[in-house]
Amino acid sequence: MLTIGEFSRICFVTRKTLRHYDEIGLLRPDHIADNGYRYYTTDQFRTMRLISRLKAYGFSLPEIAAHLANPDEQLLVFKLNEKQKLMQSGLESAERMLRQMEQDIDKLKRSIDIMDTNIVVKTVERTPMSVLGIRRSISVDPQHFGELFNEVYALLASRDIKPLGGPMAFYHDEDFKQEHSDIEVAVPVAKGTQGSRVVEGKTHATATLVGPYESDAFTAIYAEACKWIEENSYHMTGAPFDVYVKGGPEVDPKDYITEVYFPIEK
């Protein structure tokens, strides 16, 4: 038998943590003496190591407790795959941030304002367009966007409807809501298609983003477009929207092309 101190030292876990695990039923001592001293067995090393491993992978303590209470290797594989995807996404985000930092460092060394942009805003006259889509309150992240677009294309396939252009996303909120944004994803379809709606044809301010879907890049475009609209005595008359000209899993994110539109009038 091992005292709590010995078990703590061997497993690199504090006594406070072990007491907490005992309180929540995650890892109970094998024996508690009359004087309250906790004792563990060498057989519990494996459980402690598994707890530490899963915690390092991003599992919450309730998730770990659920697995220990009902071990299911197939379910664990599924959950590990989910954690792996989240970690990979975080790694890719960190790599993008490091590249951005490197570019900013280089600009600053050359006395260039890192907030300067080369965004060109212009006006276009769009013709009326019929679109078929799905409008939901969703979290603003690529995964939820992807799921919504999958639903749209599944709907088109089930009704044998041919899209007449690239996918689009309309933003109906007045302000930004990370977890519950009012977003509509849609694709152009033939006029009169059941369930479709008509996007009014009118003057639009537009700018193009080349590169991955990063919040800072979209903020720069929106800021520049709003500034241009104000300086040219226009005002927005409807929800802005994106047209994904080039993108998808088969395209390198640095080659993505997204057009952003703002319906405007004097």
Rank of each mutant, 00 (worst) to 15 (best):
T127D: 15
V121S: 07
T117Q: 07
V140F: 10
I119H: 01
F145I: 02
V131Q: 00
M115K: 13
D113G: 06
F145R: 02
Q143S: 10
S139F: 06
S130N: 11
P142E: 09
F145Q: 00
G133S: 05
T123C: 07
S130I: 02
D116S: 11
R126G: 01
V121H: 02
G146R: 07
V120I: 12
D113S: 12
F145T: 01
P128H: 09
E125G: 09
D113E: 10
V140D: 09
L132C: 06
I119S: 00
H144C: 07
T117V: 11
S130P: 04
S111V: 10
T123L: 07
D141W: 05
R126Q: 10
H144V: 01
S130L: 03
R110D: 12
T117S: 11
I134P: 00
K109S: 14
P142D: 04
I138A: 10
I112V: 15
F145C: 06
I134L: 12
T117A: 05
I138F: 10
T123E: 06
H144Q: 14
R110G: 04
R110L: 11
V121P: 02
I134A: 01
K122Y: 13
Q143V: 13
N118K: 10
V121K: 02
I112A: 11
V131S: 00
I119P: 00
P142A: 11
R110H: 15
V120K: 12
N118R: 12
R135F: 06
M115A: 12
E125F: 12
M115W: 11
D116W: 03
V140P: 04
S139H: 12
V120R: 10
I138E: 04
T123R: 03
L132G: 06
R135V: 04
I138M: 14
I112P: 08
L132R: 03
R136A: 10
I119Y: 01
S111N: 14
M129S: 04
G146P: 04
S111R: 15
R136S: 07
G133K: 01
I138G: 07
T117D: 11
I134H: 03
V140H: 08
I138R: 07
G133Q: 01
V131Y: 02
V124R: 13
S111K: 15
I114H: 10
R126S: 02
K109I: 09
V121L: 05
V131K: 00
V121Q: 04
V140S: 08
S137N: 13
S130K: 06
D141M: 10
R126A: 01
I134G: 02
K109W: 12
